[in-house]
Design a protein around this nucleic acid. Sequence first.
DNA 1: ATCCAATTTAGATTTAGTCTCAATTAAATG
DNA 2: CATTTAATTGAGACTAAATCTAAATTGGAT
Lengths: 148, 148
Amino acid sequence: MKTQTDMPNRFTSFLEDRGLKLTYERRYLFEKVSRLKGHFNADSLYESLQRDKARIARGTVYRTIPLLLESGVIQKSVGEGKREFFESQTGKEHHDHLVCLKCHKVIEFHSDEIEKFQDQICEKYDFEMVFHDHRMYGHCGSCKEKKK
Amino acid sequence: MKTQTDMPNRFTSFLEDRGLKLTYERRYLFEKVSRLKGHFNADSLYESLQRDKARIARGTVYRTIPLLLESGVIQKSVGEGKREFFESQTGKEHHDHLVCLKCHKVIEFHSDEIEKFQDQICEKYDFEMVFHDHRMYGHCGSCKEKKK
DNA sequence: ATCCAATTTAGATTTAGTCTCAATTAAATG
DNA sequence: CATTTAATTGAGACTAAATCTAAATTGGAT
Ligand SMILES: [Mn+2]
Ligand SMILES: [Mn+2]
Ligand SMILES: [Zn+2]
Ligand SMILES: [Zn+2]
């Protein structure tokens, strides 16, 4: 895979700011996750690199994920089981999650109001938000039914 | 430790509902976490049991935590490092968290407005919320300073 | 009091994620 | 462009967290 563009992006300026090198591996991972639409975790990302025949080590994937998070390229997300999942901030509109404790269904939601109040909270605490993770756990409609 | 009360509580009715046994270990853990004010994880909880000379296995702690979560006795929280932390829903007022990506400081916040909109979202999706976990990651005031 | 399915125990095992260090590479320097 | 050097990577060892196993125990139904 060749770099699609040489324009500075969120990630390259982040690396620059922090005095970190723009390596082949970091660039590759940035471009890979930017194109991902769904939820992924460190391993599924590593496996997709192997399918690409990109020879990037597992350790490098694990080391790069925090950089992608801190640069705002990806956000935390949810998925099967307890592992940490992520998703691109550019590949898909921002959303948060409802998770059913019974059937493990995941419902995505978005609330402009909540996002607005979040920003107010950050201002109040002089906090600069990079990403957030808002989850509600409970019982989905169909599991509530069954309970009866 | 003796049971403080024989009144049915959130946890005992939860166990009843689910047809689960009210064992000595479950009762002990329920009473233990109910009195905890701070953030804890599976291991710190296990260690505190050992200090009590309560002979409850690590596995039992791990198996009981999801029950305490699903019954709404505890909620997810944050703490040092990547492990899952929890805190009692009764031991302390509900709050959510701002986490600094640089110095790892944790700031607790509360927003009635956000809590209200959360409930609206749940209604909209016919979702019964048991607990939630709302985190914002970014840079705290003092870390923003240093950046300059 | 008896019975049995649910639960617990202790330790083994699995799994996710981190660490190590030699080899490589980005990029600063002249 | 060639040299230099500190940052980064790769491969696999290692660690820590969490889960699993199977025998022993127990809650609670009968
Ligand atoms: Mn959001
Ligand atoms: Mn909240
Ligand atoms: Zn459900
Ligand atoms: Zn900070």
